[in-house]
Amino acid sequence: MVDTISTQSEKIDIDFKSIPLNPLGKNDIKKLETFLIIGTLYRPEILELIKDPNERSTWIDSLAIAAAAYARYKAGMPISLIADELGRSEETIRNHISGKTKAGSLIIETYEKIKSGQLNLILSFNSSNKELDELKNQVKNLKEEIEKLKGERDELKNIINNKEETIKSLQIEIGRIKSDLDKISREKEEIINKYKLLQSKLLEIKRILENI
């Protein structure tokens, strides 16, 4: 008896024409962000890179942040707000949206291809059930990695926020101490002036007494 392997042939034609290139709201931003990631991830050089588990997390995180930043930038969102929303520094966001980073450069190239209508992506699968299950597991693992990275990002963001609050408290305390020191300095100056005045009066009284 010969075992047969069931195969399935699937094609997914992704329509990039309906993508909002200048998003007007959160839904539009999410659409553009998602399609920028998809359009970039399926570039041959990126597919090759993410085969390596050591490179996968780094690339997916970088591309996800670059796509999210660029989509928000195209929606007219200020860089400071993008940085705050994505938990990255303003410098990192600027580098992504200007194409100074590799991830940012790839995302911008994808955007320009979408804009010019040059990007056509058809995903073709001709796989056994076993291979499809493996692909599903890979997708699941990638999603878990993204969620893990998001969790780490949020944790770091909370740590930074807590440190910022501590710094603010210390700055307030330093300001209070400085104010107290200034007050003490002024009081000291007043005491010195009063002492000098008192000395002057004592000398004057002494001279008067000597002349009696």
Rank of each mutant, 00 (worst) to 15 (best):
S179V: 05
R153Y: 02
K130Q: 12
K115F: 03
R186I: 03
Q118N: 15
L149T: 01
R153V: 01
N193L: 09
R153S: 04
G117N: 08
K194V: 01
D182G: 01
E152Q: 11
K115N: 11
N161T: 10
E134F: 10
I174K: 13
N162S: 14
F125G: 03
L135A: 10
L135C: 02
S127L: 12
E134Y: 11
E155N: 09
S127M: 09
L156E: 10
Q171G: 02
N126C: 04
D182K: 11
K115E: 12
S124T: 15
D182R: 09
I192Q: 10
K150D: 08
D182M: 07
N129Y: 14
K148F: 04
K136M: 09
R176E: 14
E147T: 04
E152W: 02
K168M: 09
S128Q: 07
S116T: 15
E187R: 07
I177F: 11
N137F: 11
E134C: 05
I146L: 12
I192E: 14
D180V: 02
D182V: 02
L197T: 05
S169R: 12
E144M: 11
L197C: 01
E164R: 14
G175C: 07
N158F: 04
G151I: 01
K168R: 15
N158S: 11
S116N: 15
I172S: 12
E173R: 11
E190F: 02
K163L: 15
G117V: 02
K150H: 09
G175M: 08
K183R: 15
K183W: 06
G175Y: 05
L156P: 00
I184M: 09
N126M: 05
L149M: 06
G117E: 06
L156I: 03
I177D: 03
E145I: 04
S169Q: 12
E190C: 01
E189C: 01
N129G: 06
S127A: 15
K188A: 07
K148E: 04
S179A: 13
S127F: 02
E147Y: 09
K194T: 03
L149Y: 00
N126Y: 07
L170D: 08
N120A: 12
